[in-house]
Design a protein around this nucleic acid. Structure first.
Lengths: 134, 134
DNA sequence: TGTACTGTAATAAAAAACATTACAATTAAT
DNA sequence: ATTAATTGTAATGTTTTTTATTACAGTACA
């Protein structure tokens, strides 16, 4: 996998801990990645209605609702990959009885595991996560 | 993530469904990836004691124990990434109170989720998975 | 003694992730 | 009005990761 979930969590935690709107440049400075990458993820989080933005001077980003109302599952949903258990780029041999069916069965397994994970992540919210910081 | 789990599952399923030893070339043909990649994964699965090999002519690979005795969790363990929820390569800013602590808290969360996944995967074994194929 | 395998190293190619540059659009402050 | 700080996004370049390929030593069967 890539770094999208960690970065999304970092963004959301910063916003949860702040009273004021934060700029993408400020957040990029805390995360220590390129500001454009942060803005791309911010766009995505807006699309998923987890945050909102204010354009123009003194603009920035803030949570769209209280941290207690944002489950970690909803953050994960915003950045989740196609397959949590990984995805090979091969096309298994359709002439082989195993190769012919394996993708279907692996996808079923993947869906089950993803659901289990989401259930677990759904038990915690952003405000709870934020409390761990002192 | 990458394709290691799907490929490992494909290998293990082929071996579970076969009475005879299988060669890496045969398996690469079913999976449709390069044989060297298969042999690398086979090496890893041997290291994790899930399969055994026989060198020389008419050699090949077979399961080291019955499919009913191999949980999907043990297969996942053999190929699992450092972080199921992803890992950014950045070093968060230690001058920021959030940046300073976030990796610790994200790692804790990751461990919790991984454990949940492993529990779920531990409920099924390779033979059960194999039964889905007709 | 040849042939069909495993095992592994070294290198190359392809794909994905991340960084950088650039700039249009927006809005507050002066 | 004009300037400065900001969002939003496209285009391109660099780096890292993944996968493929080539090569060959070692092993065991026939």
């Amino acid at each position: 996998m890539n770094g999208r979930f960690p970065i999304a969590m970092h963004i959301m935690t910063l916003l949860c801990a702040s009273d004021e709107v934060l700029s993408s440049d400020y957040m990029a400075g805390s995360i220590n990645v390129n500001p454009v990458l942060v803005r791309k993820e911010l766009s995505n989080l807006i699309k998923h209605q987890l945050i909102s933005s204010q354009q123009g001077k003194n603009g920035g980003y803030k949570l769209s609702k209280a941290g207690t109302a944002i489950s970690l599952a909803s953050i994960y949903e915003a950045v989740k990959p196609d397959a949590i258990l990984g995805q090979a780029k091969n096309q298994p041999n359709p002439a082989c009885p195993i190769g012919k069916q394996i993708n279907t069965h692996l996808k079923d397994l993947d869906n089950e595991i993803e659901q289990t994970m989401l259930n677990k992540l759904g038990n915690t919210n952003l405000a709870e996560f934020c409390k761990k910081f002192d």
